[in-house]
């Protein structure tokens, strides 16, 4: 469903429009949230952040909104996740690394080069994950990016959880051999 269709639906029938908004951007918001909260919060914290972000977006999304939704909802999700991370950090006493993306980037050429290198490595990582074939690549992403457990993954891809674990372990081994220089 396109943004304009979602916005039109929101104007005609807000509940349906909001559900459409949620369905279209759930993964995106979840991905932003987990990426910022990784290592700081639990799965429940991530879900709380997602719920909060959508509730906030729906409340802020006026009927006359006509812009692209993605940056709008992405920004809300990012701010909510950063806010939640600060809250979690204050409880645990952990520090947020200064090199995290949320901080203003340093402007040195070295930093730019480092970022480019990191991006290239991430691209390579995603490429190699794809090359594992399915369902292994999905299992790896769900497990290590979204931090889903085997039971959740098993429901998503229709395998039992033990089979998911077995495939996951083998896939990680293979991935590590493909990325020997990094891991």
């Amino acid at each position: 469903m396109t943004d304009s269709e979602i916005l039109e639906l929101i104007r005609c029938s807000p509940p349906k429009g909001h559900r459409a908004l949620f369905d279209e951007y759930y993964t995106y918001v979840y991905a932003i949230s987990i990426n910022i909260l990784r290592g700081y919060g639990s799965a429940e914290d991530v879900e709380e952040c997602v719920i909060d972000a959508f509730a906030s977006a729906i409340n802020k999304l006026s009927e006359d909104y006509t812009e692209t939704i993605k940056p709008f909802i992405g920004t809300i999700a990012k701010h909510r996740a950063i806010s939640m991370r600060r809250s979690l950090v204050s409880k645990t006493g952990r520090n947020v690394p200064i090199d995290s993306e949320e901080f203003a980037p340093l402007e040195s050429g070295e930093r730019v080069e480092e970022n480019a290198e990191h991006l290239a490595m991430t691209d390579l990582l995603l490429q190699r994950i794809k090359e594992l074939g399915e369902p292994d690549s999905t299992i790896i992403i769900q497990k290590y990016f979204y931090e889903r457990n085997a039971k959740e993954i098993s429901r998503m891809i229709g395998m039992n959880h033990a089979a998911v674990r077995m495939r996951c372990t083998r896939a990680v081994k293979k991935l590590r051999s493909l990325l020997k220089d990094f891991y």
């Binding site: 995106y28 991905a31 995290s100 993306e101 991006l119 991430t122 690549s137 959740e152 998503m156």
Partner: peptide
């Protein structure tokens, strides 16, 4: 520490949640 661009790619390619 993956960046926003990568997050977007993953979200587009791999949906999550049943």
């Amino acid at each position: 520490n993956v960046n926003s661009e990568t997050v977007e790619k993953i979200a587009a390619e791999y949906p999550t949640g049943d």
